[in-house]
């Protein structure tokens, strides 16, 4: 309870400070708009449907790219995790490419796909798929040998062993990868939308800059933060917590 109070007080204080600074006249409004201006912009944008449309477009791209990443990354991670020579070849390539920020794929993507949705989808997929692959890979590789021994001892082998023991044993690590993959996908999408302007939230951000409308810039940034928090709290943190509890990593004390 005290925790909640402290938090609320902190944010109130922050907004108050912002309010005072903005009204002090030290900076022009196009550099530091007052909080109430940002709020007006936010509510007007949401009511007119302009922001809502951008949100829908961005989320749609994100979901599409993320699902594609799952469809590619999980099987790829399993294969490289189980097969030694695939791990040494494809696995090492994936590991190497992880060091490349996904936005670096944009020029290549634009040349391959042109100025369209598929180009941005490609960047999102490149952002998410590698970390999902690597997490699945290491999860599968690091299953305790004891579980495999116990399963084989009871008669499990081949596909059954994989599906009934290796996969569930690797699940905590895979879930971790799903969460990380989501946040990479989200970042890649924003970067892509900023550079290659075609609707979406990133586009609104750039528009704000071009019109010198700082209130819009901050309002859209606020939306981006809120959406990120929403998915993280509502989906991934819960999923992670459920898995960790069931697997007995978090013992209630």
């Amino acid at each position: 309870m005290r925790f909640v109070w402290r938090k609320t007080a902190f944010y109130l204080f922050l907004v108050l400070g912002w309010y005072l600074l903005a009204h002090s006249g030290l900076w022009p409004e196009y550099m530091l708009p007052a909080p109430e201006k940002v709020f007006q912009n936010l509510s007007a944008g949401l009511r007119s449907g302009r922001y809502l449309l951008a949100i829908i477009i961005s989320i749609r791209r994100l979901l599409l790219g993320y699902l594609l990443s799952l469809a590619i990354g999980i099987p790829l991670g399993m294969l490289t995790g189980k097969c030694r020579w695939l791990d040494e070849t494809v696995g090492s390539l994936v590991l190497g490419m992880q060091t490349l920020p996904s936005i670096c794929w944009l020029p290549l993507s634009l040349l391959w796909f042109g100025l369209n949705e598929r180009a941005i989808l490609f960047v999102v997929v490149m952002g998410a798929v590698l970390s999902i692959t690597m997490a699945t890979n290491s999860g599968v590789k690091n299953v305790a040998p004891l579980y495999i021994r116990a399963g084989r001892n009871m008669g499990a082998k081949g596909m059954v062993l994989f599906l009934r023991i290796i996969l569930p044993a690797a699940l905590p690590s895979i879930v971790n990868g799903l969460k990380q993959g989501w946040s990479f996908a989200w970042r890649s999408l924003m970067a892509g939308e900023l550079l290659f302007i075609n609707l979406g939230l990133g586009y609104l951000l750039m528009m704000g800059r071009e019109l010198n409308d700082m209130a819009q810039v901050i309002a859209v940034m606020f939306i981006v933060v809120m959406l990120g928090l929403f998915f993280d709290r509502l989906l991934f943190s819960r999923l992670e917590k459920a898995v960790r509890r069931r697997w007995g990593f978090d013992q209630p004390s």
Partner: peptide
């Protein structure tokens, strides 16, 4: 086994 080796996901 010494460590029981029960599957924690079940």
């Amino acid at each position: 086994f010494q460590e029981a080796a029960l599957f924690p996901w079940l």
